[in-house]
């Protein structure tokens, strides 16, 4: 088992956001974290990265408890986060964004450039001058450069043109084929369900349903995911 989230509760100051979330991710597995807006998906991800440490419960990553680790140490254990809103370092070039994050492993500059050829074309450009889709590719590339054991994608295709979305999904499928473990949050179920092995559904800060992605019936979609 790679990630074990054990009944965590997390607070924003005084207000409680998570009331008991638990799920697991095995090596090589792609897990979709689903739920309506405001149900705790992003908070769960911030808790895993220890950007918002859980108040109770615990998280094990590769057997290590993360509760006492600073966020940079969690990242070094192998949690690669692609944050919501494609956040690059705006005043660094594409190349510098990637190099700054590099940690030893199989993912190198060449491999990232092969996955996203557009990044290679724009390697000298300031990342703030990239299009939204290119910034997203850069955010994913930057996370891969850390050679993560688990890649976390938070709304990686949100607000992108359909053609670019296809590029991102193609990359995600390719990463899955290579055996990378991925935790993915996304609203496009038609793309998400085929690529995910399992799904975890959150409602009001609780994990309320888990199962293989084939079992996400229309009824479940209606109940937990419909608007």
């Amino acid at each position: 088992m790679l990630l074990d989230v054990q009944d965590i509760t997390t607070y924003y100051g005084a207000s409680q956001a998570l009331f008991g979330v638990e799920f697991r991710i095995d090596e090589g597995e792609v897990v979709a974290l689903m739920g309506r807006n405001g149900m705790g998906k992003s908070t769960t991800i911030k808790s895993i990265c220890n950007l918002m440490p859980p108040k109770t419960g615990r998280i094990l990553f590769g057997g290590n408890a993360t509760e006492r680790l600073a966020p940079y140490k969690v990242a070094r254990l192998g949690v690669g986060l692609v944050p919501e809103g494609r956040r690059c370092f705006p005043n660094l070039s594409v190349h510098e964004n990637l190099v700054a994050a590099a940690r030893p492993g199989s993912w190198t500059l060449d491999k990232v450039n092969a996955l996203f050829p557009r990044l290679e074309e724009r390697h000298a450009q300031m990342s703030k001058s990239l299009s939204g889709g290119e910034q997203q590719m850069l955010a994913i590339g930057r996370a891969l450069m850390t050679n993560p054991r688990l890649l976390i994608l938070d709304e990686a295709t949100e607000g992108l043109a359909p053609v670019i979305r296809q590029d991102i999904w193609r990359a995600i499928r390719q990463l899955k084929a290579e055996g990378l473990s991925i935790l993915v949050v996304d609203k496009t179920l038609s793309e998400l369900l085929p690529v995910a092995d399992r799904c975890v559904i959150l409602e009001n800060g609780r994990s309320v349903w888990q199962g293989s992605s084939g079992d996400v019936s229309a009824d479940i979609q209606d109940r937990y995911l419909g608007v």
Binding site: A70, G80, L81, P83, F89, A100, A101, R103, T146
Partner: peptide, 24 residues
Amino acid sequence: SRFGAALQAARQNETRVATVGIHP
């Protein structure tokens, strides 16, 4: 260098730097 990129990245956003495993 990689160090220089990290130093500038830390100036721009400390949290983001931490999530790629750099200790600002």
